[in-house]
Simulated assay, not measured.
Amino acid sequence: MTATHVITGAGSGIGRLIAERLAARGDRLVLVVRDEARADDLASVLPGSTSIVADLARPDALAAAVQDAADVADLPDAIDTLIHAAGIVDLGHVADLPVAAWTEQLAVNLVAPAELTRLLLPRLRAARGQVVFVNSGAGLTAHPDWAAYAASKHGLKALADALRGEEAEHGVRVTTVYPGRTATPMQEKVHAQEGAAYDADRWIDPASVATAVLTAIDLPRDAVISDLTVRPGPR
């Protein structure tokens, strides 16, 4: 039976590779994208995928977007996996970060995943499915300049931990993956913010993180990978 996966952040980086791997094995993809142009772009490279058009910076609009997808794109009644791979980062000292930097990162990195999960839980329960949160090493340890981003990712860990306990009775598995620095466009942006030269070869290949996510998804139903940390290997 073909599995159905809802994925955020499939436009680039880790989310894109996860989507490509799942599409290659014939699974059905429902991609959460910020606008119709991105939906068209992804449909051209991931034929057969459908979209939920929603700006994750506006979690309050997600309910309407999911309903539209259910009406127009025939969103399945059962969803096997919800993969949260989208995220934004804006570094800075606590003394310097404006309110907008806090609110946007918390909205995209924490509130939107919580709301999207809430909206799709009936479909996840129907499939006895799985929620996968692609978190960050910053979700475990906060360093200087990373306060807002780390706060959003610490919150995402709390969301996953609470959800895991709440949904066990419904057969829904919950996994958090904590990648270290990974060679993605976001990492390039981080280096620019840090004023550091970017060398992709120093960091984790995003394909390795995608492999970790698929390992958690494909694990037999008698077990769950609850937390998985992925770090750069020795060079």
Rank of each mutant, 00 (worst) to 15 (best):
D205M: 04
A63Q: 13
H191R: 08
W102R: 13
A57C: 09
R58E: 07
L22E: 07
R181N: 11
L119R: 10
L62Y: 03
A65F: 11
L214G: 03
T175D: 04
H143Q: 11
P206V: 02
G26V: 13
P206W: 06
T81R: 03
V131C: 00
G15S: 13
D161H: 12
G171I: 14
D90G: 02
D222V: 13
D35K: 11
V94T: 11
L82H: 01
L120M: 14
P144Y: 02
L31D: 09
A70T: 07
Y198D: 05
G195E: 12
H143Y: 10
A197N: 00
M186Q: 15
A138V: 07
D80N: 11
T4W: 02
V111N: 02
V6S: 02
E104G: 05
R181M: 15
A73L: 06
L214E: 07
A24N: 15
M1L: 11
V89M: 13
V72P: 05
G129D: 03
R173W: 10
V45P: 06
L42A: 11
L116I: 12
A126Y: 10
A158C: 06
E115R: 03
G165P: 03
G129P: 09
D77L: 01
Q105E: 10
I79F: 03
A61P: 06
A147T: 04
N135M: 10
H191E: 12
R16K: 14
G180I: 12
T182W: 07
I83V: 15
V53F: 06
P144K: 05
E194H: 04
Q187C: 10
A54E: 01
L228I: 07
L17Q: 12
I18P: 01
G155I: 02
D227R: 09
D41R: 15
A10R: 04
Y198I: 03
Y149T: 04
E167C: 08
S44I: 05
I88H: 03
R38T: 10
L156S: 00
G92W: 06
R21I: 04
P234W: 04
V174E: 01
G129Y: 13
D35Q: 08
E188L: 08
T4V: 09
A162I: 14
A43E: 14
W146K: 00
S12F: 14
V111K: 01
D145V: 08
L140W: 00
G129F: 08
A86S: 11
R16E: 14
D222P: 02
A65C: 12
A168V: 11
A19F: 12
I217E: 03
A147Y: 05
A65H: 06
T4G: 01
G15T: 08
V108S: 00
Q130V: 07
A107C: 09
D222Y: 15
D27L: 14
A64H: 12
R128N: 09
R125S: 13
G139A: 13
V33C: 09
I52L: 01
I79T: 04
G26C: 13
Y198W: 14
Q130C: 01
V33R: 08
S51K: 03
A70D: 15
A95Q: 15
R164Q: 14
M1S: 13
V213K: 04
A114Y: 12
L97A: 05
V190I: 15
L214C: 13
P76I: 11
T8C: 07
P122V: 06
G137A: 06
M1V: 08
P179A: 08
A23T: 06
T229C: 01
E188N: 00
A70V: 14
D205R: 04
G9A: 07
A3I: 05
A61M: 01
T4P: 05
